[in-house]
Simulated scan of single mutants.
Amino acid sequence: MKVLIVAFHSRSMTPYSELYENVIKDNNDSYNIIFWDRFSNNKLEQKGNEFIIHKVCSLGGSKLKKIIPMFYFRKTVNKIIKNGNYDRIIILNTLPAVLLSNVLISNYRGKYILDIRDYTYEKYKFYKKRVDNLVKNSFITTVSSFGFFRFLENNKKIYLNHNISNWDVFGFSDNELSKKPKIKIGFVGVVRYMKENMNLIRQMKNNGKYEFVYIGKTYPECNLEKTCKNENIENVTFKGEFNNKDKPEIYKDIDIINALYGNESLEVQTALPNKLYDAIVFKKPMIVSKGTYLSELVEKYKIGIAVDFKENFYEVIEKYINEFNSHEFDKNANILLYKVLCDQKNIKEKVKYFIKHGEKNE
Rank of each mutant, 00 (worst) to 15 (best):
V188Q: 07
F39I: 11
F172H: 09
N28Q: 15
G84F: 02
L337D: 05
V188T: 04
N206Y: 06
Y86T: 05
I215N: 12
W36Y: 10
Y72Q: 06
I68T: 03
F35I: 06
K195A: 14
Y121M: 09
P273Q: 04
E176W: 06
K290Q: 03
N235Y: 00
H54V: 09
K129V: 02
E231W: 07
P248N: 05
P181G: 01
K43T: 14
N274S: 13
D115G: 11
L100Q: 08
F8H: 15
I257T: 00
F126M: 02
G48A: 13
K123Y: 11
K319P: 02
L294S: 04
N232K: 14
T94V: 15
Y277E: 07
V236F: 11
E153Y: 08
Y124Q: 08
A7S: 13
F187D: 02
Y314A: 07
F324D: 03
K25M: 06
K2H: 12
D253P: 02
N258C: 12
K284F: 05
L337C: 04
Y210M: 02
P69H: 01
F51M: 13
V135A: 00
N235V: 04
V188A: 10
K331A: 12
Y293K: 12
N166S: 08
I68K: 13
E267W: 08
K136T: 00
K65P: 00
E231V: 09
L266K: 15
K239Q: 12
N334H: 12
K348Q: 04
Y86I: 07
H54P: 10
P69E: 02
D174L: 07
N161P: 04
Y16V: 11
N332R: 13
G147L: 11
V103G: 00
V135I: 13
K125S: 04
I215M: 12
I317C: 00
L59K: 13
L100W: 10
N325A: 00
F8L: 02
N274Y: 05
E296V: 07
E21W: 05
F172N: 14
E18H: 03
E234P: 04
K229D: 15
I305H: 05
D246T: 02
F51G: 15
F126A: 06
E267A: 13
F238L: 09
H9D: 11
D29H: 12
Y124C: 01
I256C: 07
N42Q: 14
V281T: 14
S144N: 10
N41R: 08
L276A: 08
A333D: 07
L64K: 11
I183E: 10
R130V: 04
D246V: 03
K157C: 00
V298Y: 10
R88L: 11
N361A: 14
L297C: 00
I335Q: 14
G304N: 10
H357D: 02
K300P: 04
N230C: 11
D278K: 02
Y301D: 09
I105L: 15
S295W: 00
T292M: 01
G189E: 05
D330Y: 12
E221S: 15
W167R: 06
K111Y: 07
E296T: 13
S144Q: 03
F148N: 03
A7V: 06
L341S: 02
L266M: 15
I254L: 03
N166D: 11
I91G: 04
I335P: 12
I335N: 14
K123S: 06
N163L: 05
L266D: 12
T94D: 12
N85L: 08
E234R: 15
F51D: 14
